[in-house]
Amino acid sequence: MRSVRLLFLSFLIAPMALADPRVFVSLAGSLLEAEITAVSGDNVTLKRASDQQPLVVNRKTLCKEDNAYIASWVAQHPDQATAPAPAPATVGTSAPAQKYRLVCQTLPAKSNRGPPDSDHRVFEYTYNFNLSNQEVSRDLQNARGLALTLGKSVLEPNGDLIVLQKEEFDVNIRPQSKMVHTTQPMRLTYSQDPDSPYGVKSYGYVLIIRDAAGNILLVEASPDASAKFTKEILALPDAPCMVDREFKLKSKTEVPLGYISF
């Protein structure tokens, strides 16, 4: 009698176990703790344990043990497993850009190149852009990054901006992986003496990442307001150049090159 009760309990517990979070393993070796909420053809909708957000992955990108688990889940949840819907026919239109989980941590670096007891200051600046592809299965390939470093004149701290550098670089990141781009070091010279101001100070940066089709995946900026002018920034010529606070080119304004070096 006791063995019969245990067998009956095992049938009750088995479906419950499949609803618990599971650590899914992709063929690329990345891990994700989640639970299945729906299956449609090869697409599996997972709810991440970390933030309870949904994520759709292709079951072909998962290991064979996970695929066996998915098959068991489908057998026990036929109402939540459907065949894939046919794609609607489109004429002369392209698919909209898909959202991409790309995150950047920006770490500026500054070092003093001038005498510490002098009003004449020379600082060297670089920016380290730590890009993280947080997708579970999607590679980021053939994307392009654009990094602008900005300065401002000490004589007109609220006036026009100086685009000191404009760097383009390749972005290729595997799922759950990272890459770092470091800007070329630049030196800015300025005076701290309020009675005889001169020179150029650092103002900030703008980072734009676009996919192979030109769709914008990420915009980071400091100050934050600079991120609003992506269209104007992408249209700028090579640096250095002068722009207003809305990143419109000031072609007739001279760049104070005497205070900038690389």
Rank of each mutant, 00 (worst) to 15 (best):
F129Y: 13
K178R: 15
Y190T: 04
F129M: 12
L18K: 09
E124Y: 03
P223N: 01
S261L: 05
L102T: 03
L55T: 05
L217V: 04
T183S: 13
I162Y: 00
P157W: 00
G204D: 05
A34N: 10
L188T: 02
L46F: 03
K110T: 05
D119Q: 13
D195A: 15
L131F: 08
N112Q: 14
V180A: 09
S26G: 09
V154F: 06
C104K: 01
L257I: 06
Y198L: 08
H77E: 13
Q165L: 03
N172S: 08
E156F: 01
N142F: 02
A89P: 04
A221Y: 00
N43D: 12
E33P: 08
L9E: 14
S30I: 09
L102I: 01
G204N: 06
E167T: 09
F129Q: 10
A68E: 13
K64L: 13
A17I: 15
K248E: 10
A89D: 09
R2F: 12
T90R: 12
H181W: 08
S261M: 03
I36F: 12
D20T: 15
V122H: 09
S202C: 05
Q98T: 06
G92W: 05
T189H: 03
K47S: 11
L6T: 12
D51A: 02
Y69Q: 09
V23Q: 14
N112P: 09
M16F: 15
